[in-house]
Simulated assay, not measured.
Amino acid sequence: MAAAASAGAWALWRGSSSWSSVAARSVSRGSLQQLAYRQKSSLSFLSQPDRPALAYRKLKGKNPGIVFLPGLNSNMNSQKAIALEEFCKSLGHAFVRFDYTGCGSSEGNIKECTVGKWRKDVLAVLDEVAEGPQILVGSSLGGWLMLHAAIARPEKVAALVGVAVAADYLVTTFNQLPIEVRKEIEEKGEWKIPTNHNEDGFYSLPYSFIKEAENHLSLNNPIPITCPIKLIHGMKDEDVPWQVSMQLAERVVSTDVDIILRKAGHHRMKEKDDIKLIVYTIDDLIDKLKTLT
């Protein structure tokens, strides 16, 4: 019966023999896996004093748990987030995905949001929703936020997995614009960032968002994070160049840092093989953390 349950959970990934070996290993992890397979996350809300409620979905299970941090203009229902939930469900590990203030199903006005406010959201989820040590998986802007969370809550963060980490990148990109363009953005109070990811062809950010983000720059000084870190980046990323992950690896204090460059990978890393790579990486990291405890 356990084998049948596992086969269903891993059906999406059976295009790879190496992936099947990961699935086979999960079968041996006992009856807890059967319970996890049947478990489904439901939409819940985290109330915060004087702040909008945060929407989240949580699976209970073994530690380390996994917390997924989405990117800019994304939410907890992305392909990566859902795939990670299925992966954690199959292994019986805890998992949390959530929406930042003003995003997805969470309350709040996105036009009033800042990097600092979203940082508080991540810390609230770690403090109030996640239980025990966690592996933070941060995508794009979520990768920037996971760095701040790891610094603020080292006792809660067992490891980091960054996917196309956009540390400092909005500020860096803005500062590289011609001075007359920056002045125009400041006067209009809005920055329209070109993108291929929506029908409008641009993301709109308040100028105030960029100025506030300057208070959270990470790459100018050594980053006091000592836990294991895996950085995955597509070399065809047209939004955040893979060199940002290289720079981040140099800045963190931790010596246990691996950089995985995917030659055909784009920014969102949402193709089937991209997601396989992310899940392989997390699975290996879970095994590694077990040997360290």
Rank of each mutant, 00 (worst) to 15 (best):
M1H: 11
A4I: 14
S6K: 07
G8M: 08
A9E: 09
W10N: 06
W10C: 05
W10Y: 08
G15T: 08
S17D: 08
S18R: 14
S21W: 08
V22Y: 10
A23K: 07
S26T: 14
V27N: 02
S28T: 07
R29E: 13
S31T: 15
Q33H: 12
Q34S: 13
L35P: 01
A36Y: 03
Q39T: 10
S41M: 07
L43M: 14
L46G: 11
S47G: 13
S47N: 11
Q48L: 15
D50E: 15
P52N: 05
A53Q: 07
R57D: 08
K58L: 12
L59E: 01
G61E: 03
V67K: 02
L69A: 04
G71A: 03
I82V: 15
A83T: 02
A83N: 04
E85C: 00
E85V: 01
C88S: 14
C88N: 00
H93P: 01
H93K: 06
V96G: 01
Y100T: 06
Y100V: 07
G104C: 11
S105T: 05
E107P: 00
V115G: 01
D121A: 02
V122D: 01
A124I: 11
V125H: 04
D127Y: 08
D127E: 15
A130L: 03
G132Y: 04
I135L: 06
I135R: 00
L136Y: 05
V137F: 10
S140T: 06
G142W: 05
G143Q: 03
W144F: 04
M146T: 04
I151C: 12
E155R: 15
V161E: 03
V163E: 10
A164L: 08
V165R: 08
A166T: 00
L170S: 05
T173F: 10
F174L: 13
N175M: 13
L177I: 11
E180G: 06
I185T: 13
K192W: 02
N196D: 12
E199A: 13
E199S: 13
D200F: 11
L205V: 13
Y207R: 09
F209R: 02
E212G: 00
N215H: 09
L217Q: 08
L217M: 15
L219V: 09
N221I: 06
L231T: 02
L231M: 07
H233Q: 12
H233Y: 04
M235V: 11
K236V: 09
D239Q: 12
P241A: 05
P241S: 03
L248R: 03
S254C: 01
T255V: 05
I259E: 01
I260V: 15
K263G: 01
A264D: 14
G265D: 12
G265Q: 09
G265C: 13
G265V: 10
R268C: 13
E271M: 13
E271W: 09
I278F: 03
I286M: 06
L289C: 05
